[in-house]
Design a protein around this nucleic acid. Sequence first.
RNA 1: CGGGGUGUAGCGCAGCCUGGUAGCGCAACUGCUUUGGGAGCAGUGGGUCGGGAGUUCGAAUCUCUCCACCCCGACCA
Length: 574
Amino acid sequence: MRASRFHLATLKETPVDAEIVSHQLMLRAGMIRRHAAGIYSWLPLGLRILRKVEQIVREEMDRAGALELLMPSFQPAELWQESGRWEQFGPELLRLKDRHERDACIGPTHEEIVTDIFRREVNSYRQLPVNFYQIQTKFRDEIRPRFGVMRSREFIMKDAYSFDLNQDAMQRSYDIMDQAYVNIFDRFGLDYRAVSADSGAIGGNTSQEFHVLAESGEDAIAFSDQGDFAANIETVEALPPAAERAAPAADMEIVDTPGMHTIDDLASGLGISARQCLKTLIAEAEDGGLVALVLRGDHELNVLKAERLAGVASPLRLAQREQIIEVLGNDIGSIGPIGLSIPVFVDHSAARLADFVCGANQDDRHLVNANWGRDCDEPVSVDIRNVLAGDPSPDGKGQLKILRGIEVGHIFQLGQKYSESMQATVLDEQGKAIVPFMGCYGIGVTRVVAAAIEQNHDDKGIIWPESLAPFQLAICPINYHKSDVVKQAADDFYQQCLDRGLEVFLDDRALRPGVMFSDMELIGVPHRVVFSERGLGAQQFEYKGRRDADAQELPLDELTTFLEKLVTSSCAPG
RNA sequence: CGGGGUGUAGCGCAGCCUGGUAGCGCAACUGCUUUGGGAGCAGUGGGUCGGGAGUUCGAAUCUCUCCACCCCGACCA
């Protein structure tokens, strides 16, 4: 590609409403442009990368035996009514009516459509297993789209759906997809982790997420420093502390704590550690009343765990301040478990504390040297906190480490949820109708692009992994329009690259070198060759890798060897 | 949806308080010079000041209203 014929739309200034690096760089590099909240066009440069991601996904899905098809975005309401999701799905499902006033939606996912296809097309156990997939546009009317294409309303997803005769066979299909995902993410050249996960609203049991590791990731993932354990932090069990609770050592006292409403206030005000304080959160109960959730001061509530407790409203809602004052008689900031008249659940770690500090259930007062058993009943000890780095791994092997990740893939076992509600069946060997077991496997294709940037960039711009780069090589001739030798050398080499099938970008714009260099660095081209009169005069060309600190001068007669090495390395799988 | 904020040229902003000729930088276009890290000079084009209503002789500026977008919270690839 010649720069003069490519729409290179780089920006010098960083758009002000782009919050995260990937969004800023995608706009600056001219990959995407926004039309409305969470709605983007992919410009030619961005599309090249998107296609790279799609192609890797497609090749590995095909290799795993999945069959590509294409399903509609516009979906009739009938199918969603059959599965029950027309009612269940919230406003995230974009509903609309056509000119005949028929209800429909723009598909946020395709379980209904694929199940409809399956029940029409597949009748016999002989046709199983089967796995249909597509790479297609989804629409989810997110409450708050943000971070560019990381959380957009319209996005491209690869979604695959497997159908099997029984649970074991479903497990086999799932394992095949698991391996396919490993292959895909390996080929992307990104640092990622597969972690076990909550199966969320779609339902089913076993579920795994694939996270691209990045500081800016919205999810925390915990993994063992010794074993294989890795999971989304929201699912990780916090083991009770090994040590028994110490015996009470001092008498309980009430102290005045004016203005100390947070654990930090309290710890610094009393000169103690947050670990010695109790944090008491008040949530709504299932019956409309309140429940108390008690944690150690330095711990964080895990919402998923809390809403699974008997009596706690699910989804979890923290109580309104007015209701707390009405029921408990005092304000948030001085609540404690001792003397509370509502059900109290205490996290294991908090339940092991002795001589702790907690709210006195009187405004601006706290209790010190309080003790379970002596000053109130023995606690109901449960696991309701997020694990922390250094906690023991639930599999007993080593300690947990915590990293941040961007969820780009998710594989589920759905079981018979959709096949049953939509009455999809196949006949088995006995001629009996069997409800098949389904699996569902997603990759956020557009999100992969953003995640790759989030993980691979520097202050100059994007650093694409070889497998995702829009161009492998940039040729920057200096004085292309003035110097015949430079033009000759650049054109010849460009043609050689094309002949060898390399994706090459020739910057034939009449620009000063600094502008060319910064553009090529911004858009993240992995390799750069410079031709100049000075260099050519010395029988040299210049090479610089995107990650290299300095360029190197190489003899001109090695140019062909250099090209061959580049072709080999960039065409190698992975 | 709740809370906070912003809408002025393609992008980034000033002007608004205190009503009176719509401005700056970058980008774009033309010409000349320059050519190894985002050049210089000269010139040019580009605006329903988010929309509507109101107050006023007069509104980017004051009032009301609607809309859009951004940021913080509950959802997800």
